[in-house]
Lab assay of single mutants.
Amino acid sequence: MQRVNMIMAESPGLITICLLGYLLSAECTVFLDHENANKILNRPKRYNSGKLEEFVQGNLERECMEEKCSFEEAREVFENTERTTEFWKQYVDGDQCESNPCLNGGSCKDDINSYECWCPFGFEGKNCELDVTCNIKNGRCEQFCKNSADNKVVCSCTEGYRLAENQKSCEPAVPFPCGRVSVSQTSKLTRAETVFPDVDYVNSTEAETILDNITQSTQSFNDFTRVVGGEDAKPGQFPWQVVLNGKVDAFCGGSIVNEKWIVTAAHCVETGVKITVVAGEHNIEETEHTEQKRNVIRIIPHHNYNAAINKYNHDIALLELDEPLVLNSYVTPICIADKEYTNIFLKFGSGYVSGWGRVFHKGRSALVLQYLRVPLVDRATCLRSTKFTIYNNMFCAGFHEGGRDSCQGDSGGPHVTEVEGTSFLTGIISWGEECAMKGKYGIYTKVSRYVNWIKEKTKLT
C-alpha cells in the first residue's frame, strides 16, 4: 500500500490518463441519441435557420407576430419608411378606419389613436360632414345658397324668414311668412316636400332668348283662358290664391305678392273693366268669414305684352289694390325667389296649380277651390304637342294621358313649387288646347323671366 501511494504521488498524470480511459469505455446513459432527441424537440425550422439574422431580410411573422416588435424591426421587413409607417399605425392600436367614419364618399386613412378623412370636392370637416359648395344638395341650405369668396357655403332665406341657429334652416321672422300653410287642420295635408338634388348652379339658368321682337298675326285659340281631375282644397291650404270678379264672377285667378299687390295673367284683364279681388276665398257660393274683398285701382301688364300681336306672350300683369290686405292664416303671400332659384325650383319637376275653373272641358265651374299636382314636361315634348308657338318664356306641365289639367277660369292662378315646406311661385296658368285632352298640356308663363320686374313694381313704400 505504501508503494502504491508513492507511485500516485510521483505520477499524477498517469492516474488522470487511467481515469479518462475508464470513462470513455463506459456506456453513456444520461444523453439520448440524435434521433430520439429530435422526437422530443420537434420544432419547425425557421426561415433563416442556421444563418445569422443580421444578414437576412426581415420576416413579418418572425419579427412582429411571434413577439412584439419595434418600429426598427418592422422597418427591416418593409425596407421602406412609408410602408412601415402605414403598417405601424394599425399594428400599434388597430384600424381606426374600420367603422368607416368618413361621410359623403370620403376616404379614410388610419393613424395612431386617430384617423384622417380625405374629402371629395365640396366637403370638409373631420368626417367630411361639412358642405362647402352650393353645387351639392344646395349646400344643405333649406332655401338659398351662395358661395363666399373663400368658396364656403353661405345660406340665406327669402323675405319674412331668418336663418336658424344651425345656419342652414329657415324659420319665420314674421307672423305670416310667405308660402307657408298655417291653418292647423290643413298642415297635415301639406304636399310632399321637395329635397334639393345635386345641381350645376353655374349652368342652372337656361341660355334662352326671349323672342321679344317676333311679330306674329293673332292666333285663334280655343278655350285658351284655361282644375280638371283635381281635388277639393281645404280652407287655408292655398292662402296665396285669390279669385278675380268682373263682368262675371271667378273669371280668373291670381296670387298675393304682398298686402297691396296681386300677380295674374295679362290676358285676364281689360282696361276700363272694374275688377274686384277676393282673398281668403274657399267656396265661392258661401260666406265663410275668411274672405277679404278689395278693388283694383291700377293694372300693370308687362311692358312687352301686346294682345294685338299675341294674347299669351309675356302673359303676366300686376294688380294694385285700393287697401292693403290683412295677412292671416287664410290670406298669405306666395314666396318669389330670384331668377336663378325660381328656375331651379321649376326644374324640380312638379308643381301645384289651383283655381275655381271648370271641372271638365266646357263644363261647370268649381264651387270649392280645386288643386292638382302636375309634372313638368320637357321642352321637346311640349313643342311636338301643339302647332302653336311655345315661346321661351312659357313652359308645359300636365299629363300625356289627359284627364287632369287646369281649365277655363283658372287662368292667372299660381303654379307653385314647394321647397322644404315653403311654396314659391314658378308659373302662372296661361293657356292650353281644350282641357285635359290626351297628348295636350297646360301652358304656363315662366315666372323666372319676370321676377325682377315683379319685385321692382310691387315694392311697398
Rank of each mutant, 00 (worst) to 15 (best):
V4A: 11
I7E: 11
M8S: 14
A9W: 15
C18Y: 04
L19M: 07
L19E: 02
L20M: 12
G21E: 04
L23M: 11
T29K: 10
T29V: 14
V30M: 13
F31C: 08
L32M: 15
D33V: 09
L41D: 15
P44A: 13
N48Q: 08
S49V: 12
S49P: 14
S70G: 15
F71L: 12
R75K: 15
V77A: 11
D95Y: 08
C97L: 01
C102T: 00
G106F: 00
I112D: 12
E116I: 02
E124C: 02
N127M: 06
C128K: 01
K146C: 04
S148R: 07
S148K: 09
D150Q: 10
N151P: 07
K152V: 11
V153H: 11
S156C: 04
K168G: 04
C170H: 01
P177L: 01
S182T: 14
S184G: 07
S187F: 13
A192H: 08
F196E: 12
N213E: 08
I214H: 06
N222E: 10
F224E: 06
F224C: 05
T225M: 07
G236E: 03
G236M: 06
P239G: 02
V243I: 14
V243G: 04
L244G: 01
L244E: 01
I256V: 06
E259R: 06
K260I: 04
K260G: 03
W261F: 07
A266Y: 02
V269H: 03
V269T: 06
E270Y: 06
T271Y: 06
G272N: 11
K274V: 07
V278L: 07
E285G: 06
E288D: 10
N306H: 10
N306D: 08
D315N: 09
E320R: 02
T332M: 06
P333W: 01
I334W: 00
I334N: 00
I334R: 00
I336L: 10
D338V: 03
Y341R: 08
F345T: 01
L346T: 07
Y352I: 14
Y352T: 07
V359P: 04
V359R: 14
H361Y: 12
H361W: 07
V368S: 05
R373Y: 06
D378Y: 03
A380F: 12
C382G: 02
R384Q: 15
K387H: 15
N393Q: 05
G398Y: 04
D410W: 14
G412Y: 06
H415I: 03
E418I: 11
E420P: 01
L425N: 02
E434C: 11
K438W: 09
K440H: 14
Y441W: 04
T445Q: 05
S448E: 07
R449V: 11
K457W: 07
